[in-house]
Simulated scan of single mutants.
Amino acid sequence: MEFSVVTLNTWKCDGLYRDRLRLMADGLRALAPDLVMLQEAFAADDDGTGEPVDTALSLAEATGMHVVRHAGRRKERLFETRTVVSTSGLAILSRRPILRHEVIELPTDPRDGDRQALIAVIEGDDPARPVIAVTTHLSHLARADELRQAQMDAALDAVAALPETPSAVFLGGDLNTGADSELITTLGRRHGLEVTNAYHVGDLDVSFPTLVSALPRRAATRDKCIDFIFLLSAAQAAPSYRLVTTERVLDKPDPETSTYPSDHTGVRAVFARVA
Rank of each mutant, 00 (worst) to 15 (best):
M1D: 14
F3D: 02
S4W: 04
T7C: 09
N9I: 06
N9C: 06
T10A: 10
T10V: 14
T10D: 04
D14G: 12
D14M: 10
L16A: 14
D19Q: 13
L23I: 05
A25E: 11
A25C: 09
L28D: 10
R29V: 13
A30Y: 02
L31C: 11
L31E: 13
A32D: 15
V36R: 02
V36W: 15
M37D: 00
L38Y: 07
L38S: 12
Q39T: 15
E40M: 05
E40W: 00
A41Y: 12
A41F: 11
A41R: 10
A44N: 04
A44W: 00
D46E: 12
G48C: 11
E51Y: 06
P52R: 15
D54L: 09
T55Y: 11
A56K: 01
L57P: 00
L57C: 08
S58V: 01
L59A: 05
A60Y: 02
G64I: 01
H66K: 02
V67S: 04
H70G: 06
A71C: 11
R73C: 09
R77N: 05
F79P: 06
F79Y: 15
E80F: 10
R82H: 13
V84D: 10
S86G: 12
L90D: 00
A91T: 03
A91I: 03
S94H: 06
R95Y: 09
R96M: 11
L99E: 13
R100Q: 11
E102R: 15
E102A: 05
V103Q: 07
I104Q: 07
E105N: 08
P107I: 12
P107A: 10
D109S: 15
R111H: 13
R111W: 07
G113F: 03
R115W: 08
Q116D: 13
A117N: 06
V121D: 04
I122T: 07
I122C: 08
G124A: 07
D125T: 08
D125K: 06
